Amino acid sequence: MNTQQIAERLVALCREGQYEQVYDELFADDAENIEMPAMANGPLGNAKGLDAIRAKGKAWGEAVEQVHGGSVGEPSVSGNWFSVPMSLDVTMKGQGRMQMEEMCLYQVRDGKIVREQFFYDA
């Protein structure tokens, strides 16, 4: 798949809530996940390698008490990069309800996502 096809597939799967399938189909084994600097450490911080990214996703899911809604925007593609705006209305365990908005940036190499980076107000 080329970058446009990967971007479109990621958006479709995220809209369906099929996050494990996103990892199975689209991510390279050595992919890296990068958070904002204030959030880079800890169990929900930066992750390197698909197993670490999956573990982070699992930890995130376990921290969520309830999902009230969210959205996944259209991808914008430039060369081997694409971005997708996403939002989430969620109640986190012990933290209450919050509205989250972020820009997700992805890098593609050899038909797989090798880097994802999230931009949001921390």
Rank of each mutant, 00 (worst) to 15 (best):
A31R: 01
D30W: 02
A28R: 01
Q95D: 07
Q107L: 11
A122Y: 06
L105C: 09
M92E: 09
Q4H: 04
P85M: 14
K48Q: 06
V114R: 00
K48F: 05
G73W: 01
V114F: 00
E20L: 05
K56G: 08
R115L: 14
G96Y: 06
D24P: 01
K58S: 10
R109G: 13
P75A: 14
V72C: 12
M36F: 08
I34P: 00
A63S: 14
V90C: 11
T91L: 02
L13P: 00
A38G: 09
L50E: 03
M92L: 15
S78M: 10
E74Q: 13
Q21T: 15
A12V: 13
D121P: 05
V11C: 14
D30V: 10
R54N: 07
E116F: 11
E116L: 15
L105Q: 09
D110C: 10
F27H: 03
Q5S: 11
K112W: 04
Q117F: 03
Q95A: 15
M98T: 14
C14D: 06
I53D: 03
D51K: 05
Q95E: 12
E35W: 04
Q95H: 09
A7P: 01
P43N: 13
E102R: 08
V77Q: 00
A12D: 13
A47K: 00
R109C: 06
R15W: 08
T3M: 01
W60V: 03
G94S: 05
G57H: 01
L44F: 07
C104E: 11
K48L: 05
D51S: 03
G45I: 03
E102Q: 07
N41K: 12
E101T: 11
I53M: 11
A59P: 00
F118I: 14
